Amino acid sequence: MKPTLLSSIIVALASLQVSTTQAQDIKLGHVLAPTHSWNIAAEGFAKDVAEATDGRVNFQVFPSGQLGNEKTVVEGMQIGSVPAGVIGCGSFQPLDARFGIVELPYSWPNREHAYAAYDGKLGSALEEIADEHNMKILSWWENGFRHVTNNRGPITSPEDLSGLKIRVTPDKMRLDTFTALGASPAPLSFGELYSALQQGVFDAQENPLSIIHSSSFNEVQDYVSLTGHVWAPACLTVSTFTWNQLSEGDQAAVQKSADEWRDKQREMTQQDDAELIAKLEDAGMNVNEVDTAPFTAQVQDVWAEYSDVFEPELMSLVEYYRKGE
């Protein structure tokens, strides 16, 4: 074989090896249905990243808890066994209690204040905390305002929650909030929630309208009360073990797509909220507005209790963006 031909073959094989080494197939898990905006946005994000990196970075989306519940995915990202996820950010609390600040009840008068906070200094501060636990938050998506559904009747005042058996997310902040409001809260994994409501283990649950609809809770719940007690962010997150395997150029492409799909996912959530009330009513649910002032007043002790946990810096950032300054 001539030297020039041999040299060409060696160069070609070396290039193929580098290309193969650089290619990354990254599993991305979340717990919501394929019809939910998280999944639609995650699929769009994955497609755009693959195109922008010429196939070097391939996110593979696994909805409906296929990679495990949020606790499993978070723990997996921390040690590098799960590469990526879209996570309801309250699920980071077992790693660091300061993440509970995302669950403070009645923090935001509207979603625009929340966007400014998480795209600004509050989000940056929480991203630094995530870095300490081997996770990189790429962008802040939206889980939306959470509302109460139940089978007992409309919730119009805190008194209507008295003794109500309500499933909440497994974090202390949410438990303390509904205890302060007079309910009887208990945690349960999301994957078990539908059957628990169907069997009457719980009278009620609380979630954004998009999850209430995509999870078909109208089949097992009669009332939706628009309590709006929490605006919950979602984190598009990558394990730093995975992130550090990407080139700087590919990292920049991933970040760009993450920011673009953050905005698109938020738009989907806003559009959903405008349409879902009618859809839930058409499905037979009774939907009622709520004056949130009495609820806000009743959870002030929760704010006071957790102010030391979240430290003055984070609390001052919440107050700053809450006032829209």
Results as ranks from 00 to 15, higher is better:
L104D: 01
S124G: 12
L126W: 15
P105V: 09
A97G: 08
H147D: 15
L104I: 09
I101R: 06
F99V: 06
N143S: 14
I129T: 08
L122V: 00
I129C: 10
W140D: 09
E132Y: 00
V148Q: 01
E127A: 13
I129M: 12
I101E: 09
N134T: 05
F145S: 06
N134C: 08
F145E: 04
E132Q: 09
A125C: 01
G100R: 04
H133W: 00
H147V: 13
D131L: 10
E127M: 08
R98Y: 10
E128Q: 09
V102K: 02
W141M: 08
A125H: 05
R111C: 00
I101N: 07
V102L: 02
A117Y: 05
S124P: 00
K121D: 15
E127K: 12
D119P: 01
W140S: 13
D96S: 12
W141Y: 11
E127I: 07
W141S: 03
H133M: 03
K136C: 03
E132F: 00
N134M: 10
D131F: 11
E112K: 15
M135L: 14
E128A: 13
Y115A: 03
I101Q: 04
Y118V: 07
D119L: 08
D96C: 14
Y115S: 04
Y106T: 07
V102M: 04
V102C: 02
E142Q: 04
H133V: 02
A116W: 05
V102Q: 04
S107R: 11
N110R: 03
M135S: 13
G120Y: 08
G120L: 14
D131C: 06
S107A: 15
E103I: 03
A116T: 12
N110Q: 02
D119M: 06
E128G: 05
P105K: 12
I137C: 15
L95K: 01
N134A: 06
H133R: 02
